[in-house]
Write a protein that binds this DNA or RNA. Sequence first.
DNA 1: AGTCAATTGCTGAGTACTCAACTAAATTCT
DNA 2: AGAATTTAGTTGAGTACTCAGCAATTGACT
Lengths: 163, 163
Amino acid sequence: MIPESRQDDKAIARAANSRLVHDFGLLIKSATLLEQRIDSALRRECGISHTMMEVLIRLCRRPGEEVSQRHLADDLTLTSSGTTRLIDRMEESGLVRRVASPEDRRVALVEPTEDGRRVFLRAADIHAHVVERYFVEPLARDDYTRLTSALSEIHKALREDVT
Amino acid sequence: MIPESRQDDKAIARAANSRLVHDFGLLIKSATLLEQRIDSALRRECGISHTMMEVLIRLCRRPGEEVSQRHLADDLTLTSSGTTRLIDRMEESGLVRRVASPEDRRVALVEPTEDGRRVFLRAADIHAHVVERYFVEPLARDDYTRLTSALSEIHKALREDVT
DNA sequence: AGTCAATTGCTGAGTACTCAACTAAATTCT
DNA sequence: AGAATTTAGTTGAGTACTCAGCAATTGACT
């Protein structure tokens, strides 16, 4: 049995040291750290989480646009249940309000309150600062452009087959 | 007061539609989707989470190397408390075991069991498949190289100032 | 029109994390 | 050597998700 075990050892070490595994780990780790950095800055300075900021960004993009919870869930990679509770918390802190849709009585439209818009404006500043510092600054101009286009491709591939 | 409000409207729309905000969102979203994809594949095929897989990768890298929980926590971007419970679950499912360090009686070294190594070997296959499909395939060879080097830079910047 | 299927949002139960406070061991300072 | 500080890991309480299952509403098929 020892020779078979030695065979495995080789395969195991090879798999654990694979280039792909390392690179993928780097992506996940960088994204996690970056999100944590933004999240704690936003919590400290504006009292909102990074996820709440993503909601506000979505809601402020086109003023007057009707945005349902389902829509938000898709955009934020959340389940509908997670979204319900997220909007609950945001409504409770007065950042957004739910409005019944006139066309479809199932959907709850979400819109920012005046206060939500005010908080968003302050948060956008913090957000920009952190993104600038850790996402743009470390990269050469060209690399930044290529990074984002690479991410677009990856994102497209992920969206395309919803297996 | 209306003119002031209109002023804000402009600033709000500009902030919400900023290029940086969009690009950063893309990074976070791609990473999240990618991780979810891997996580569900691993759970379905091998009964382990993506986080557990990251632990196994770390433990199988250099066989015989002493890896403490602290070490794992740093590598996985987890708190020590999160790591304790993660290793609890992994120990319970027989994937790893805790061994007291002979040099420092505070530290708990973590090592993979035979079963853990077996599971890792199967999981590495799934892992490689998904990474290949959504991380490598969508990109031209050059773009892949540049993407990973850009990520390295970002990661370095994040590591450097631990503000 | 009447049933069947799909979709929206909500809720209970469970999971996987965080933070703060703790113990025990090791290290540093004097 | 002894006190003060730092570090490793654990625990309790809280947070923010997920999944499965629900009711209400809408749309599609005949």
